[in-house]
Structures are given as structure tokens and as C-alpha cells.
């Protein structure tokens, strides 16, 4: 596949999004990790600088693969108090688009709505869009860079981002 061509179909990308949403909503985090490339990263920019660069901007989350693996260890630990018992989440992923390839990276875009419920807390709704970069590993699409950008002006009543967006 050469520069600028579409290296994945929308249906293929949608399948990946839907599989991911299912794994995350069911807290199958080890299985979710298998969707990541070896050098994957995960970003949630700050609400006031959604286009910021994590090297000079304070993000909400900026994980390299090492910290992302540790994040999963934390999320599975009952001592992860913010997510124990785990939140009930339900993700709706829409408006999926596939961008023109950049080398072996495939930019993909989608909108998301994530409903999050915890006992004795008000429901919280995380709305935003994804700007991911995928790459093919042994023929399958894998996340190389996951970027979840929230629409809220500030986190405010959303509180912590203690689960995976």
C-alpha cells in the first residue's frame, strides 16, 4: 500500500471499534491489550488544549506502552479504588471514517458516547471523538496510537478519568 491510499475499509475499522468497545465494557482488559501494537500509546489531552502535544502540554493521560501496561495492572487490582467495583460502562461508537495512510499508519476517526454508572453516583456521560492511528501487525489492524478527545469544556462533574476512554 503506498502513501495516501486507504489501507483499510470502513467496515474493517468499524469491526475493530465494536470489538474494542465490547472488550472494554466487559472489562476484558487482557484481551483488549491484544488489540494494541507493541509500541502503542494512549492519550487524553486536557480539555482546554485538545490539540496539544503531550511533550509540552499537561495532558489528562499520556501513556507510553510501559505505563499503559501498568495502567491495566492497576485497573484489574481491587486496590484501584476509583474503579472498584468496576464502573458499568456502555460505549456507542459512530461516524467512523478512515483517513489517508501516513506510511504504514492508518488514521481513523470516530465519535463516541460513553455512559458510566457507579453505585450511589450520578450517571456520567463522556462525549468526544477518537483520533487514532492504526497499523497492520501480521495482517490484523492494531492500535498504534489511541487519542480520545473530550468535548466538555472542563472535566468538571465528570470527575476522574479512571477507566479507559
Amino acid at each position: 500500500m503506498s502513501q495516501g491510499e486507504v489501507a483499510a475499509t470502513r467496515a474493517e475499522v468499524e469491526d475493530l471499534f465494536y470489538l474494542e468497545a465490547d472488550l472494554l465494557d466487559n472489562w476484558r482488559l487482557d484481551d483488549w491489550m491484544k488489540l494494541l501494537a507493541d509500541d502503542a500509546s494512549y492519550y487524553v489531552p486536557p480539555n482546554d488544549k485538545p490539540d496539544g502535544d503531550h511533550r509540552f502540554t499537561l495532558f489528562t493521560i499520556a501513556d507510553d506502552i510501559v505505563r499503559l501496561r501498568e495502567r491495566i495492572i492497576r485497573l484489574k487490582d481491587p486496590n484501584c479504588h476509583a474503579e472498584y467495583p468496576p464502573s458499568h460502562t456502555r460505549r456507542l461508537i459512530t461516524n467512523v471514517r478512515v483517513g489517508a495512510s501516513e506510511g504504514d499508519l492508518i488514521p481513523v476517526f470516530a465519535n463516541f458516547v460513553i455512559y458510566r454508572y457507579r453505585r450511589a453516583e450520578p450517571p456520567r456521560v463522556f462525549v468526544g471523538h477518537y483520533r487514532h492511528k492504526l497499523k497492520r501487525v501480521g495482517g490484523s489492524l492494531r492500535f498504534f496510537e489511541r487519542r480520545a478527545i473530550l468535548d466538555a469544556e472542563e472535566l468538571g462533574a465528570l470527575g476522574s478519568v479512571s477507566f479507559l476512554l
Partner: peptide
């Protein structure tokens, strides 16, 4: 102060 603000509520 580095750019990027974390603003969140605690109940």
C-alpha cells in the same frame, strides 16, 4: 505554568 489545565469537581 505549563499549558494544559486539569479542572475537575470532587463531591
Amino acid at each position: 505554568i505549563i499549558s494544559g489545565t486539569q479542572e475537575y469537581d470532587i463531591k
